[in-house]
């Protein structure tokens, strides 16, 4: 049993080496396939970053009537935080709102002058609310319509922005769905290409398989070396792919960051280097082994 095992390993390596060109082409195709998979993975990471960035842009604000006591506002904030749809609530006091307003318009002398003339702060305190998903704002707005809040609240800006929020939210879900569809379609194509390549590689050896059977080899004794080769295909192509990707990601990242600020693609790649390699390794080995097993099946029937 152990001798058989050793033989199978040895012959697997030997075949890989002796069929140099065949192995090289098979590995090349698998590198392309795995690059496709890794590329899709990176793109989906990017899409998710963009989508999250977009989602973070959306919020609604509740403005409180002047002279509302701060504890009351904070009470509303705590009530909001207890709701399951709410992701975060930011309190902006009247003073903070004024400071923010001044900061934003400091270049504009007329506004500065007008503010000088006023005795009191004309701005209202507000809560900026972010939802966990863009389609939950309606529920939050509804929550704020409760009778008990009516004396405090002067306005909720959801109703003005309702249409924009809805549009943005549909764009986000469209991006997600299209991304998923494209990823799935391309993955299926890549997998088929990989399986077909392995099938052809084994097809060229079909006579050998027949001969081995006629000499009295059992199926597993014949399959074994092909399994070892399949694992080698996976191992080498996964490692080659991730090594090739490293400089590509490094060179590409600045341009990507220009388009999608804050995506930090290269950082993500570096941090998850091992995980990505393991994913590719798994894909490669599963493809190599699974492909070999299917391809060899019909030649073993004799």
């Amino acid at each position: 049993m152990i001798t058989a095992f050793k033989r199978v390993f040895l012959v697997g390596f030997q075949n890989f080496w002796r069929n140099g060109w065949l192995s090289a082409t098979t590995v090349s195709v698998m590198v392309l396939v795995l690059s496709m998979i890794l590329g899709l993975l990176m793109i989906s990471v990017l899409t998710e970053a963009v989508v999250q960035h977009l989602e973070n842009q959306i919020d609604i604000s509740v403005y409180f009537k002047p002279k509302t006591a701060e504890p009351d506002i904070l009470q509303v904030k705590n009530n909001l935080l207890a709701e399951k749809e709410v992701k975060s609530v930011e309190y902006v006091s009247e003073d903070a709102a004024l400071a923010l307003f001044k900061e934003r318009h400091k270049a504009d002398t007329i506004i500065a002058q007008v503010l000088e003339e006023l005795d009191a702060n004309p701005l209202e305190a507000s809560l900026n609310i972010k939802a966990k998903a863009p389609d939950q704002f309606a529920a939050i707005a509804k929550f704020l319509e409760k009778k008990e809040y009516a004396p405090l609240i002067s306005a909720v800006n959801y109703y003005e922005n309702q249409e924009t929020i809805a549009r943005l939210s549909s764009v986000i879900s469209a991006i997600r769905k299209t991304g998923l569809f494209i990823t799935l379609a391309l993955s299926v194509i890549s997998v088929l290409v990989a399986l077909n390549t392995i099938r052809i590689a084994i097809y060229t050896l079909k006579d050998e398989v027949t001969i081995m059977k006629l000499v009295g080899a059992t199926n597993w004794f014949i399959r074994g070396p092909f399994l070892v080769e399949g694992v080698l295909y996976g191992l080498i192509s996964a490692t080659a792919t991730i090594i090739v990707f490293y400089p590509i990601m490094f060179l590409l990242a600045p341009y990507v960051d220009n388009f999608f600020p804050g995506s930090d693609l290269f950082l993500y790649f570096q941090r998850n280097f091992m995980t990505l390699w393991l994913i590719l390794l798994l894909c490669g080995i599963v493809l190599g082994v699974f492909g070999s097993m299917i391809a060899i099946r019909k030649y073993l029937k004799i």
Binding site: N15, L205, D207, E208, M212, V215, A217
Partner: peptide
Amino acid sequence: KLLSQKTAYENIAFA
């Protein structure tokens, strides 16, 4: 029906 991937020695050893 010799195994083309194996040497004469290995073909015989295979049996």
